[in-house]
Simulated scan of single mutants.
Amino acid sequence: MTPYVVDTNVAIAANGRGTHADRRCQLTCVEKLESVVAREIVAIDDGHAILNEYRRHLRPSGMPGVGDMFYKHILNHQYQDDRVRMVEVTPSDDDRRGFDVLPENAFDPSDRKFLAVAVVARAVVLNATDSDWDEHDRLLDALGVEVSQLCPQHASKGRGEHDE
């Protein structure tokens, strides 16, 4: 089973709050996150950089949206390898790389953690609204990273906004 790396913007769009994602995009993100939680594996880093970013944007309690429920799923299953795969990625001393597993790159530094985890876990990246994943297609091809653009109307070159 191929694991997924879920960019934070997917969960934010699924919540439908504080996002520029249209209704179609929000619904697509809701459906994909529900599917991932029900039957897929999510890859995160062992240094908790991804969890820390989720924590800044998502809430696992109260009146959660689907993105928040996804975050709660990750918290509840982070040590169950059949649900959440925690992989080792080492931050690089070279700011042009971000992580040892990555070559020099112009990727948004806040997104490099997702990229590094995708490389190590051989995971598919889920993206909704971040154009970085489209703008750096040659780097992604060279690294063998596949990106599933859930909302291409928001994430294509020149039209997407940079969300974390």
Rank of each mutant, 00 (worst) to 15 (best):
R112A: 10
G65H: 04
S35P: 00
E146M: 03
A43E: 06
Q80N: 14
A43M: 02
Y54T: 03
Q153N: 14
M63R: 13
P60M: 12
E161M: 12
I41H: 08
D45G: 12
A118L: 09
K32F: 00
I44Q: 07
D93I: 00
T90Q: 14
E146Q: 09
E40N: 12
G62D: 11
G65A: 05
D81W: 07
V42Y: 01
D134S: 14
K113N: 05
D82E: 14
R138M: 10
P3M: 12
V6K: 00
L126A: 08
D95L: 13
S61K: 02
K113I: 12
L143T: 04
D141H: 07
V145P: 01
Y4R: 05
Q149L: 10
R85C: 04
N9K: 05
G65N: 05
G160E: 02
Q149I: 03
G67I: 06
L126D: 02
V66I: 13
E146H: 05
H48L: 14
V30T: 07
H162T: 14
P109A: 07
E135M: 10
A106I: 06
V36F: 06
H20R: 13
G160C: 04
R97V: 05
D100M: 12
S156P: 01
N15R: 01
L27W: 12
V117M: 06
V117G: 08
D94E: 12
A118K: 06
M1F: 12
R112L: 08
N9C: 15
G160R: 02
P3D: 09
R59L: 15
D82F: 11
A128Q: 01
N52F: 08
H154N: 06
G16E: 07
D100V: 14
Q153Y: 06
L27Q: 15
H57M: 10
D46W: 11
A142T: 11
L102C: 11
D94C: 07
R23M: 13
I74Q: 04
S35W: 13
C25S: 12
A155M: 01
V5H: 04
D111P: 01
H48N: 15
D95N: 06
T2I: 12
G62W: 10
R56T: 10
V5Y: 08
R59Q: 15
R97M: 11
P3Y: 11
S61T: 13
Q153M: 13
L27P: 01
A11H: 03
V120M: 10
K32C: 05
H136V: 02
A118F: 04
I74Y: 03
H136Y: 03
R23N: 15
Y79C: 01
T90A: 11
Q80F: 08
G144Y: 06
Y54H: 02
A155K: 00
A121F: 01
G62P: 09
Y4A: 01
I41G: 03
N76F: 06
L58H: 02
P103M: 08
G160L: 05
N76R: 06
K32L: 05
A142L: 13
S131D: 05
E34N: 08
V101P: 12
P103W: 09
R39P: 00
R122V: 00
A38P: 00
L102S: 05
D108S: 09
R39T: 07
E53V: 03
L139Q: 02
P91E: 13
S61E: 15
V147W: 00
A123Y: 04
V87G: 10
G16N: 05
D22W: 03
L115P: 00
F107A: 07
S131F: 05
D46K: 10
